[in-house]
Write a protein that binds this DNA or RNA. Structure first.
Lengths: 156, 156
DNA sequence: AACAAATAGTTACATTGGAAACTATATGGT
DNA sequence: ACCATATAGTTTCCAATGTAACTATTTGTT
């Protein structure tokens, strides 16, 4: 019995279970209320923050895949929430930014998003929340470091 | 600017980013080393714990969908890691349990799984880990409660 | 006993998400 | 200046995952 591992005390499982439960409720709220997918909402949130950005930059900031960014961007452009322009200094790149309509959308969504977050975190103190965020970041970094290591030992 | 929300300080995003990073590295390890998907590994872990179980019971314990359980079970039966028998007391149900081969597999995987967990949590103290687990559980519960509430207000 | 409603599990269909291949442009070395 | 290599983004293809519909069996109500 040396090897016993309880699934529900196993970090990757706990993390995935919590994340799935949260994603599910959040995603369905965005869908129902604003007809936005989570990736779409993420682009809007970052664009509101940074103003104007290449897709590549959005990839880095959101940790989303470039394909996901491309698809979300396309849909947002179609819905006129985002404007896509040429990048003068690099012919391959496209610059994305929110339209007025996109900003209005953001302004409607953000308070609701925060209200959801508040309800999810209702059982935690401010200190706990801060500690949680820091731990999640450290774990994410450890995971990406592990991944790099695995990749290298594979490529060798 | 009242509405500003920084994506990277937003819990659902932090959680999903951490969970994705961890899942990715874990899933590829299971795949490469044991040719198992995460759902398959979860069934094995729970079956090792409980010995024998209906699929329905596995659904409750893993929070996986019954379709996911059905599919993972099928594949494990094909690979002779799991045995599926009729339930005498309920003609609809199937009882799953590990074969000897399944137990052997488990015994090979569990230490590696724990080693991964250890590396992911290397930056955290034991107290922090305990706090993290507790918080993740509370958040998961809050999310499922929110979901129920949403469902009811929809059905009304 | 008979039938409506619920439950275990499977099958079929649609959606999502990721990897690989591809196009276009840029960069660095010779 | 030229070519090999790298990068931004898109398209194509495929595997994973969820939803809805279905089958078989059970349970509860009359």
């Amino acid at each position: 019995m040396s090897a016993m591992l309880r699934l529900d005390a196993f970090l990757p499982y706990r993390l995935s279970a919590a994340s799935n439960a949260v994603s599910k409720v959040i995603a369905s709220a965005y869908q129902r209320r604003f007809n936005l997918s989570v990736p779409e909402w993420r682009l809007i949130a970052v664009l509101r923050e940074v103003g104007e950005s290449t897709q590549q930059n959005l990839v880095q900031r959101t940790f989303m895949d470039k394909v996901a960014v491309s698809r979300a961007a396309e849909r947002l452009v179609q819905r006129a929430l985002v404007r896509r322009t040429e990048d003068e200094s690099d012919g391959r790149a496209r610059l994305l930014s929110l339209t007025r309509k996109g900003r209005t959308h953001y302004d409607a969504i953000a308070p609701e998003a925060r209200a959801y977050e508040k309800r999810l975190l209702a059982a935690l103190s401010a200190d706990e929340v801060a500690a949680l965020h820091a731990m999640l970041l450290r774990i994410q970094n450890a995971a990406t470091a592990l991944e790099e290591a695995a990749r290298e030992s594979n490529a060798q």
